[in-house]
Design a protein around this nucleic acid. Sequence first.
DNA 1: CGATTCTTTGAAAACAGTCAATCTGTGTGG
DNA 2: CCACACAGATTGACTGTTTTCAAAGAATCG
Lengths: 203, 203
Amino acid sequence: MGSPTSIVRNMHYPLRVYIDKYAATTISDADFELVQKAFAFKRYKKGQYMLQEGEVCKYIAFILQGSMRQYSVDAKGGEHILHFGIENWWIGDRESLTMLTPSRYNIEALEDTEVLLITSENLQYLSTNLPAIGKMISMMDQRNFIASQKRIHDALSLTAEERFLELLKHHPDFLQRFPQTMLASYLGITAETFSRIRKKALK
Amino acid sequence: MGSPTSIVRNMHYPLRVYIDKYAATTISDADFELVQKAFAFKRYKKGQYMLQEGEVCKYIAFILQGSMRQYSVDAKGGEHILHFGIENWWIGDRESLTMLTPSRYNIEALEDTEVLLITSENLQYLSTNLPAIGKMISMMDQRNFIASQKRIHDALSLTAEERFLELLKHHPDFLQRFPQTMLASYLGITAETFSRIRKKALK
DNA sequence: CGATTCTTTGAAAACAGTCAATCTGTGTGG
DNA sequence: CCACACAGATTGACTGTTTTCAAAGAATCG
């Protein structure tokens, strides 16, 4: 029999912490065995794509290490970043995953990245059979929704400079981690405007 | 015993249609009895508030008749509409409801409005005891999330005119139903800009 | 009707985007 | 180790879009 550490210290451990945190319970070793089996480990090299526009998204990823961006490309070729995924965040196109429709998004690794992938079926299975996972998913949806509401509010009501300051406040780490061109795209402004605002705001 | 029509034709009927549609099942009469008991009917007069900033949101509402707006007020007193609720849509502050935190939003009836209210506890209860409701809620969350993603994308990548055209395409009824000042606020532009864009786009 | 709110229009100012040039840092191959 | 290429960042001048302020006209409600 494996000692507790054989479960605690494995590569799925961050996911276990995440589940316990958002389901507000402690998942049993037996249940977590099921969870582990439902997720597949995968590495992406920097620049590699987890999803490309037009494909149907087959997995949602839990990021163990590294980072990814989810972005769309508009008619004029401009890229718009909808979401950055970092450690202990999820990334994937939920719409495409469950509706089985072609995705409008690209998901690309920004660094060498390690993730745990789960299919829609497995997620559904865990969700209906393990109450903790059901709870976690509904919390996840809710957090996503709340974060989206804030993002909508900010995008519609704040100036570029105010949005920059919000980013600085809530994700100061992003400033170190991602190139400014991408942060600009995330805020819905040009790289030039980002540069000017940054200079002005950090004086 | 009531005939089937006594269930089918009552005021909760639109909710039943909604559940069947989004849970992709037919809910039994017995289960729907439970649902009916969990919801409370309420009328709001035009201009009346279902929620005011600073209060904790106690209910989510399913709109039977009429319309509402959910909006925030910024530091300079400007109003920003996050969401319009009309027949067969939900309205409420999910964050405040489940976190029990004071809401940043106001929810106001724009017409005389009839709703079915449900508390967080009752929603939780139905969700865990009636599979159809659990399914419906997760679909609801997902639809909300997808709609939010689109709204973020539009707010960050489209010009005011393009956003107007999107509104015209997806919610042409809104143009008739809500004053332009509110539609402008929903799109994140001023009433003056809305008026000019409208004139230009509808020529 | 009168009062209020909503809509339109005009002119000036603020804001952000575009285009183009330069600068910086990084990594690669010679 | 240097030179070069490349991607990202900065700066300036200009353009275009949206806001702001102000005033007048239209619609709605009590």
